[in-house]
Design a binder for these strands. Structure first.
Lengths: 194, 194, 194, 194
DNA sequence: AATGAATGAGGATTCATTCAT
DNA sequence: GATGAATGAATCCTCATTCAT
């Protein structure tokens, strides 16, 4: 059963990816089961073989996205270099997400209506885990004398907020390349820790 | 008929305010006409006496909110003081909105699904007008030597983004008062222009 | 109270005329009270001062139309001339109605959904009264040797049916004038009685 | 998948037949999706699996009816016999429709509110196609010396009009049988071409 | 005599969900 | 595993009707 197990996992992931696409275009309420299925050349009925219901799909979308993003950020944290270098990497990674995986990213930062209390808390908890990685690096940087901040959490909020806003205005054919944006943001936002 | 005219205007405003509340809780798609009406002890049918349809209501919500906010920001701009002082005021005003009028504010920063091309453009245009007020002050400050920035628009994006994120984490009974947040953000974000 | 009585009668008639217009454009179900009122620069609420409800308005429309048409046909019948001449006049009158008062006419020949059993019977009865005038003239013509028909009622049905169909194809700027149509139809249809 | 295809086609036809019944009783506006579904022991929601919307159903009703009727008339045209015999057959066929398929027939002769310009034109075009079959036979009959008419189209209008009116007065238990009506009408109406 | 405002019932449409096959 | 078909609850919207003023 290993094989069919893998197939199922793969299919589930496909469905989640399709759902992410649709949800980002139409919002969680606007996205229909049919939309999600159509993208995969399936019929909506089939989705219920893999997921309990729509709510479940949307929830697992958030879960998947946050897990993936957190993993990437942890990689930055575990790399070599000073805390400043690590934070710069984290910032660049986050920005790359915001721009290149706009859809996934959007899901990360919008809590989204539709969830039960329990599910919402779980999502918010994961989001917090993600943010804590930034905090840890900042705090270490303060301890090592690289950074200065009276309120590290508030500063992190500013940094993340500034970056999250990017996907509101970024356009693929705009004046700045992704690289330029990454550099400018990284350089500027570090000022907040000086 | 001035009187009945005023009454109608008042009622329309009441409906818009109710709609803002509901939309912020449930999103534009989740909000039902019944929800909006219930808040005002009306029946959904009555709403159609004042507005053409749901889309119309949601659109006018955005319009109202953006008009009000822009007016407040313009007041800051037209006040006395240096450009730095003016920008500080604008930042504090924006933060006050983000916190105290969370509902209205949310509507300002989320474009929201549901609109026609024309309507969406109109809203985005108004949003841009609002942002331009910040740009103007920043540019004047650069000219007068108060500020430094290689890319004023990008810097403004960071500043606004950082502030807009506040409503994602602010809780009424948190550790910081509104005043403290305003002061810390204002002081910190100005670093981006130094 | 004679004066206000007249005013009321006039207003009622205006409303019925407006209703006829609207019903003919949109059908009895498609016509709304607002449509009927708008034509007269009134508000729909006011209609209820003059009529019990919509059904009542539509019913009285039919009544008015049939009364008027019957009166005109009776005039033909009471005129001078042979029965053939009288029937020719009746045919021409009916055709003039079908063309010039298309709206009124339509109401005469469509029973129209929406009525109660009682009302429908009343309308059908009036419609029958109208048709009987044709029958009377035909029967007299047979008696006098002007006409020949094995089944006068069936022949009358053919004649009326042929004429009623005119309003389905007649166009104001068509090839035939009203006069020509009247003449051709009158001459042709009389063949059915020869 | 030929099988399921057939099933769908059958179901669609059933729905159209039910719709025809209901529309004839209550008119196109009065007929509700629920009415149409109830007849088939379905729920209104199911109808949308087969048709886009109500308008679509009503339109296809007309299409179906006109296609069927035209086919029958073409059969008459393609049969053996003189033009007079062919026209007699067409008249009898048309009358049979008017009486036995009153519901279908009604739909043929009432354009009905509710359609878009495009759809209405399409229906009127089909109706015209049907009428042209009569014209053709009449014209051929004139050419062969069987018929006489100064204006064949106008004469055809009278013939069709006379027949269409039948369904306004025909009652199943009336004095005349269908056969008698067919004979009397056919004999009488031919006089219009003599 | 008229109207502004409100209502509520009804109807079209959408869509998540179910289930037999 | 997948789907065709059906369902019914929810939602937007319309409109005849009412009534205080």
């Amino acid at each position: 059963m290993k094989l069919s197990d893998k197939k199922m996992r793969k299919k589930k992931e496909d469905i989640l990816l399709s759902a992410i696409k649709v949800v980002n275009k139409k919002g969680p309420n606007g996205a229909t089961m049919e939309d999600i299925a159509a993208e995969l050349l399936m019929t909506k009925g089939s989705l219920y073989y893999y997921f309990k219901n729509k709510e479940d799909i949307i929830f697992q979308c958030h879960e998947m996205v946050l897990t993936e993003a957190t993993s990437d950020i942890v990689d930055c944290q575990n790399g070599n270099g000073t805390n400043e270098e690590k934070l710069l990497n984290m910032i660049k990674t986050h920005i790359r997400y915001a721009i290149e995986k706009k859809e996934i990213f959007n899901m990360m930062i919008k809590p989204g209506e539709m969830f039960t209390e329990v599910q919402l808390n779980q999502i918010l908890h994961m989001r917090n885990e993600y943010a804590l990685k930034f905090d840890e690096t900042i705090v270490k940087g303060i301890a090592s004398g690289e950074f200065v901040s009276e309120d590290p959490v508030l500063t992190r909020m500013m940094i993340l907020g500034a970056m999250n806003w990017i996907q509101q205005w970024y356009r693929p054919n705009g004046k700045k390349t992704i690289n330029e944006i990454q550099e400018i943001y990284a350089a500027s936002l570090l000022k907040l820790l000086k």
